[in-house]
Nucleic acid binder design. Structure first.
Length: 292
DNA sequence: ACCCAGGCGGGCG
DNA sequence: CGCCCGCATGGG
């Protein structure tokens, strides 16, 4: 049973909502350009620019892709937007109470995206003690300042790619501060060096959630919460349940009568309640909480 | 003007 | 261990 079908230049997809996915503050959405009125999206992936138009509704929609490498674009889009996720099964599992059910109703079709591990790492280091609007501003500056040029077939520049860790080697903390990274600049510098020379993020995919998190937390500037975000949105580890201020406040308010709980206790609660899709529950709780 | 933002590392008891 | 503090910067 497939939840989407490929067409010559795109997909027909069930239970997919581009808008809610883009607005839910995931790595791709920090640098992609999205036009709500037109339903259009443009983003860089690898050394390509991909454009997409989404028509229809969250139950059933059509995505038309534009790219000079359609095979790559289809593969990238399907992976990035988690088109293989069985949303009916996921919704059935995490619909444990009215709070989650109403969040699913409001944001039906929102996906937990699968992003490049380094892209995810940089984005979430940038997210600490920051707000979504400003994260977007800073990440876009990083792309335009440090990202490699993307060329079309005729050698003309059509955009900038997301800067790899190697692209940041040779840049200084001051360069990153110049983009508005602030006190996070030292973490970015350290992480770029570490991920270029000491830790290959692209060799962790087949490792366990625990092992991946342990490796990620060796990066300066990556703690428990950011590591969970990377495990979830960079490696697709659904047992990851990032607990930020929004999620913590919401869990305490909805499930613990407003009483303060320890992060560890909340992790155990979420794991028990929503496994193996705790990550999806988190994304709906987070997005729901932020929009109240 | 003042306050806060998808936390983290470091220092302290 | 747990707790508390400072941290750069742009927008409300």
């Amino acid at each position: 049973m497939k939840y989407y079908t490929a067409t010559s230049n795109g997909f027909r997809i069930k239970d997919f909502d581009l808008r809610h996915t883009i607005e839910s503050a995931q790595p791709l959405t920090f640098h992609a350009d999205y036009n709500l009125a037109e339903g259009t999206l443009e983003y860089a992936a690898g050394d390509k620019v991909i454009r997409a138009v989404c028509l229809g509704n969250s139950k059933e929609c059509t995505v038309r892709l534009h790219s000079n490498d359609m095979a790559f674009a289809k593969k990238e889009f399907a992976k990035r937007f988690a088109l293989n996720d069985d949303m009916e099964r996921i919704y059935a599992r995490i619909s444990t109470d009215q709070f989650v059910v109403s969040a699913i109703e409001r944001y039906h079709g929102m996906r937990v995206t699968m992003n490049d591990p380094w892209e995810t790492t940089l984005c979430f280091i940038m997210s600490q003690y920051n707000n979504v609007k400003r994260i977007r501003l800073i990440i876009k500056r990083f792309v335009s300042e440090f990202g490699p040029e993307i060329l079309d077939g005729d050698g003309k520049t059509v955009g900038k790619g997301f800067p790899s860790s190697g692209d940041l080697i040779g840049r200084t903390e001051a360069d990153f501060r110049g983009c508005g990274a602030g006190f996070r600049a030292k973490y970015i510098k350290s992480a770029a060096d570490y991920c270029t020379n000491n830790l290959d993020l692209y060799k962790l995919h087949n490792k366990s959630y625990d092992k991946i998190k342990e490796e990620l937390m060796r990066i300066s500037g990556v703690g428990d919460k950011v590591a969970d975000c990377i495990a979830l949105m960079g490696y697709g580890k659904m047992e990851a349940f990032p607990i930020d201020v929004w999620v913590k406040r919401t869990l305490e308010g909805v499930y613990f009568d407003g009483k303060k709980k320890k992060i560890g206790d909340l992790h155990r609660f979420a794991e028990e309640r929503w496994r193996p899709y705790a990550g999806y529950a988190q994304q709906y709780i987070f997005h729901g909480a932020r929009n109240m």
